[in-house]
Design a protein around this nucleic acid. Structure first.
Lengths: 211, 211
DNA sequence: ACATTAGTGGTACGGTCGTACCACGAAGAA
DNA sequence: TTCTTCGTGGTACGACCGTACCACTAATGT
């Protein structure tokens, strides 16, 4: 057993285990022993790297959001350099829907943390609302940019539409999670509103294409 | 101490206690002893009327939804006989926002149950999705009725708009709950979409008024 | 070589939680 | 009246959970 372990790496590994087991059995049902078993380490190790369960949970939240933000960024990058604003917005919204294991886990756990934060002030004090606010701001910017480019309804209120789209995506995601709705149905609803806001179809050949 | 107690009344009283304490400290933090203390009865009594905690939680969910459905109905009735379709829809959506203690508790607990049902199959088996489906169906009907009356955009897809409005109301409610958004902001967003769907302003003097 | 310290394991402790068990009083049935 | 049964209280039990404690190993510093 080597000495001088990279603490941050170890903490990330344990946080990953927390996310996995919490995604399976629910955040409320996860204990230190479960996390240790999932990570393949001893209970003492989890205690060593996170002194308390509260700190483990906080770190897990940070790790969860960082991980998913990176994933969404990667999906955006994979959509090619400078896709249309509509494609960008659509990718952003659809990426948040729980359509595979990772997004499903993210949606479930993020919602769990959010609900928990209502009655847990220590969790509420965590930088939590920053993420929705950032998403709202980013989406508003994209819509305004689309309006300036003439591909979105210039009379629309970009901020209100951004809030609306994100709000719909969130609940639609939850309804997928609980099995009320199928992903295609949720996507159709979101696309309907994008069709309403964006005035032109995708025309990848106009403007600065791929050069 | 009188004999022959009305079981249903007692169960309702205990369920009420469950809702109160869960609304304050979170559904995850509520125990049988807390419920008993809140209801002013002994732990044994809670056991007597609900053999197990699981049954207590199930009954609490039923009680919660029944209670809130009744409240929304009362608010609709208080809006006067035959208000316009728009007023009806607006009342319905706004009633679901957490703007006072009772609606706040409802929103918090219903969300908690929903999230819990994702990883708890016994809870998922409970008639849970019926409520959103019923709301969706009812709202769709109201919108179609508004279209038939000529007060709503006839080109709109009533079902899609109903889903969208409910989805927005849900997430906006949660954002109020976590302190991200103020109720007025949420109401403004909803009203924006009602203005988009409904083509005429409220004209209470047309049609069959109060007689 | 020796002392120190980071890393790791095992385990015990105190508390809490859901449930089960035991006892007793009082209303209805005979 | 006597017996049964419903309602009620108190309490104990077993399990689990988060945390603390103790021991041991192996690198690091001098």
């Amino acid at each position: 057993m080597p000495k001088r372990v990279d603490h941050e790496e170890r903490r990330a590994q344990i946080a990953e285990a927390l996310i996995q087991v919490a995604g399976r059995r629910g955040l409320h049902a996860v204990g230190m022993r479960d996390v240790a078993a999932e990570a393949g380490v001893s209970l003492r190790l989890v205690q060593y790297y996170f002194e308390t369960k509260e700190k483990l949970l906080f770190y897990g939240l940070q790790h969860l959001t960082a991980r998913f933000t990176a994933r969404v960024g990667a999906r955006l990058a994979a959509a090619g350099p400078d896709p249309g604003p509509r494609a960008m917005v659509e990718e952003l919204l659809l990426a948040s829907l729980p359509t595979d294991d990772e997004s499903r886990t993210f949606h479930l756990l993020y919602s769990s943390y959010a609900i928990l934060s209502v009655t847990d002030e220590a969790l509420a004090a965590q930088p939590f609302i920053d993420n929705p606010d950032a998403a709202e701001h980013a989406l508003t910017g994209l819509l305004e940019q689309a309006q300036a480019s003439g591909v979105a309804d210039p009379d629309a209120d970009a901020r209100t539409e951004a809030i609306s789209l994100l709000a719909m995506a969130a609940t639609l995601g939850t309804s997928i999670l609980v099995g009320q709705r199928r992903p295609e149905s949720a996507i159709a609803v979101l696309r309907h509103h994008l069709d309403r806001i964006f005035t032109t179809a995708e025309t990848p050949e106009r403007g600065a294409g791929r050069g």
